[in-house]
Structure formats: structure tokens, C-alpha cells
């Protein structure tokens, strides 16, 4: 996207989650997306076996944010040998919760007429950033002050050629909202908020060399009452800024 325009939420490229050789010819690659507030698992399913596949179904193990299929996996026609089909599975966040390691890990079971197969994948936590995540400015200041220093995590993003406005626009496309911007001694400091689907708020401070997109390092500080999410949030923030 061009500088100054919102660019939409970041969607990672599809990767192979279940190789055919581990699943009697069934190959699944996929990614996760948030489109207009709806979380989706987007799948490419290929039949690399010599017989027809049918009767597909999917189930998730309990996971950190209660992700669960919001409906059945819709593959309405049998899949012939060498045939590929794209499927979109809308997800809800009201399923059973169990803390996973890493936090964004998802264990999946897929069944067809041949057998049941299992795989793990990791979702970008940014798909859980909700559209109403812009915190009130007064609440932000109070919350920032209130969260103890031990719950602050610091990170660095290297080789990021964005000025603060471009960074702010890009992040807003993924529901990371800028609340205030200040320039201090040649550095732009962006104060930002994120709200996860389970109601956890993350506060961010981004430092960018003012007016200098060739400067390549960004400093990120994250404050959260549930600091175990900070690492995952940072990974998503970095992916959004670099893509």
C-alpha cells in the first residue's frame, strides 16, 4: 500500500500445516485472516492420494483464546485425486480456553473418509485485535501509569524503513490504534492501544527517528496487565510493519 493510506489487516502467506506424506495423501496448507471483524481460517486442501476423499470435518483442541469453528467445514463435493479446493472456516472466540505454549498455538484434528489426522499451527495474534481497540486518551494515561514497570516489555524492530505516519497508518489497518504522537529530541513517540477479543488491553509506545524513513530501527515498549501476551503481540506488530 502507498504511504498515508490504510492498508488493511496483515494476512500471513499460507504454509503447509499437514504434509500429504503424514496424512495418507491429504495435504492442508493455510493461514488466518481477520476480514471485516470476522476471524477466518483459510485452507487449501489437496488430495494427493489415488482415491476420492469425502466426509471432511474439523475440530480444535481447547486453546489460549477460545478459538473454535463457528460452523462446519464446508466441502460439499468429494475431492478427486490431484484435486485442490479452497475453504474458509469462520471462527468464534467463545470456545473452551486452555493456556497453550506458545500462547498462539492451535491443535487441529481433521477427519475425512480415510482417517483422522492431527496438526498444530500458530496464528498471528493480530487477528484477535478488535475494531474498537482505540482506548480513551484519559484512560490510556491512567492505565499506562497504573501498570507496573515489571509488566513492561521492550523490543526492537530492525530494518524497518517507515516514518511514524506510515507506521501508524499500517498498524491502524490491523486495529493497532495511535492515540497520541509526540516528538522529543528528534524521535517520534507514538502511543497506541490494542484490545484483544478476550478483553485484554495492550498499550504500546513506538519510537521512530522523526522524519527519517531511512533510519531502520524502531523501539517498541509494550505494557499489559497480562504480560505473557506481550511477546506474541510484538511478533504480530513486527510482521504488520514489515509486510
Amino acid at each position: 500500500g502507498s504511504v498515508g493510506m490504510p492498508t488493511g489487516a496483515y494476512i500471513p502467506p499460507k504454509t503447509v500445516w499437514l504434509p500429504a506424506m503424514k496424512a495418507k495423501g491429504l495435504e492442508i496448507s493455510g493461514t488466518f485472516a481477520r476480514r471485516a471483524g470476522v476471524i477466518q481460517m483459510e485452507l487449501t486442501i489437496t488430495n494427493k492420494a489415488m482415491s476420492v476423499m469425502s466426509d471432511f470435518a474439523i475440530q480444535f483442541n481447547r486453546n489460549s483464546f477460545g478459538l473454535a469453528p463457528a460452523g462446519p467445514l464446508q466441502i460439499l463435493t468429494p475431492l478427486g485425486p490431484n484435486q485442490t479446493i479452497e475453504a474458509s472456516l469462520p471462527l468464534s472466540t467463545v470456545g473452551p480456553v486452555m493456556k497453550m505454549e506458545p500462547l498462539n498455538n492451535l491443535q487441529v484434528a481433521v477427519k475425512n473418509n480415510i482417517d483422522v489426522f492431527y496438526f498444530s499451527c500458530q496464528y498471528p495474534i493480530s487477528m484477535l485485535f478488535v475494531e474498537d481497540g482505540k482506548m480513551d486518551r484519559q484512560v490510556f494515561l491512567a492505565t499506562w501509569k497504573d501498570i507496573p514497570n515489571e509488566h513492561e516489555s521492550q523490543f526492537q524492530i530492525k530494518d524497518c524503513h517507515l516514518n511514524s505516519d506510515a507506521a501508524s497508518n499500517k498498524l491502524q489497518g490491523s486495529n493497532i490504534f495511535t492515540i497520541a504522537k509526540r516528538t522529543v529530541e528528534g524521535q517520534d513517540m507514538l502511543y497506541q492501544s490494542i484490545k484483544l477479543t478476550n478483553g485484554i488491553w495492550v498499550l504500546a509506545e513506538l519510537r521512530v527517528q522523526a522524519g527519517n524513513p531511512t533510519y531502520t530501527d524502531l523501539e517498541v515498549s509494550l505494557k499489559c496487565r497480562a504480560p505473557e501476551v506481550s511477546q506474541c503481540v510484538f511478533q504480530s506488530l513486527e510482521a504488520v510493519l514489515k509486510n
Binding site: R137, Q138, L141, W144, A180, R182, V184, E185, Q187, M189, Y191, E205, S221
Partner: peptide
Amino acid sequence: ELEDGLDEAFSRLAESRNNP
């Protein structure tokens, strides 16, 4: 008036973060 206060508070926050 409240807006001015908040603007100022963010400036103070940024300053304090830069010179702890």
C-alpha cells in the same frame, strides 16, 4: 480545557520516557 490537560499529559509522558 480537559483536552489541553490531556495534550500536556502526553507531552509530559513522552518527555519523561525520553529522560527517565
